[in-house]
């Protein structure tokens, strides 16, 4: 059994909040850079170049990549042989968020109640998804999520008869409707199967997958390739101002589902697809 103290967890979470908001992952960085060479629109190229410049400034001058530093979303994999010492794990993560968003000059974008809407002033509470896994490690992924793109996400409860064509239509509809609002070029996370909430969770988690990691199920891999090509033919382009780079990746996760259903969730992320992982 491994013992992990909540102080260690808070310290790591604090650093992860800052890291995710100032630096993009290597795969996101190179996908954005490569897009400049393939983009057909002159204005589109200009915008993609500005996004590169933006990343450089964020890095060198310590200014968050985007002012919407997001609601802090976590995927936590807790090994069943880990013992957490020093208090509640959830409290420790929220304490890390509180310190990260304050010390890191990140925007506090969370209101404590969806109707009364009073800002909590420290970006807590976070949205935390726990998974109990075998082993003695604690793996924490943070994915701060901005709401320009979050607001354009969709769930479709399709009928089994709609099949894969129905899934394709659902993805294209969501991306088309999102258009310029979601700050393209976007990353499209898709969850197919499960239940209502399982599909949404899979779509969100798909956004954190490295682009080089591909699905093992052949039809899923093919669907990712086909949808990326189709989305980039929609014409939306960088900033939604026309072009051939509308999405950088389509990441799809699947799960078993019920005989009567075919849930499809599409979680759209902007080009600032932030995520970082640490294992303790």
């Amino acid at each position: 059994m491994k013992i992990i103290n909540t102080t260690t967890i808070s310290d790591n979470v604090k650093d992860m909040c800052i890291e995710a908001n100032y630096y993009l992952s290597t795969d996101m960085n190179s996908a954005l850079k490569n897009a400049i060479n393939t983009e057909k629109s002159e204005l589109g190229k200009k915008i993609l170049n500005q996004l590169q410049e933006n990343l450089d400034i964020a890095d060198k001058e310590m200014i968050p990549i985007c002012q919407d530093t997001g609601m802090a979303v976590f995927f936590v994999e807790l090994g069943q042989d880990v013992h957490i010492e020093g208090g509640s794990l959830t409290d420790a993560i929220n304490e890390g968020v509180r310190r990260g968003y304050t010390d890191g000059y990140l925007r506090k974008s969370v209101v404590g109640d969806p109707i009364e809407r009073v800002n909590t002033k420290d970006n807590t509470p976070a949205v935390i998804h726990y998974d109990i896994v075998p082993g003695d490690e604690l793996k924490i992924t943070i994915a701060p999520k901005g709401f320009g793109s979050e607001n354009m996400s969709r769930i479709f409860m399709l009928k089994p008869a709609d099949g894969i064509e129905g899934v394709k239509d659902a993805i294209l509809t969501a991306v088309k409707d999102a258009g310029p609002n979601a700050c393209p070029p976007m990353v499209v996370g898709v969850g197919i199967g499960g239940t209502f909430e399982k599909s949404a969770l899979m779509a969100k988690k798909a956004l954190t997958r490295e682009f080089s990691e591909r699905p093992t199920i052949p039809w899923v891999k093919d669907l990712e390739d086909e949808m990326l090509e189709k989305i980039n033919k929609l014409g939306i382009g960088p900033g939604g101002l026309g072009g051939t780079t509308t999405a950088l990746a389509v990441n799809i996760n699947t799960y078993a589902t019920h005989i009567a259903g075919l849930p499809v969730a599409i979680n759209i992320c902007c080009h600032v697809n932030r995520h970082t992982t640490r294992v303790m």
Binding site: Q50, I63, G148, G239, L241
Partner: peptide, 13 residues
């Protein structure tokens, strides 16, 4: 007008 979304560091300059 539109400004480029997600270019907050650049625009701040």
């Amino acid at each position: 007008f539109a400004a480029v979304g997600g270019a907050g560091a650049l625009l701040s300059k």
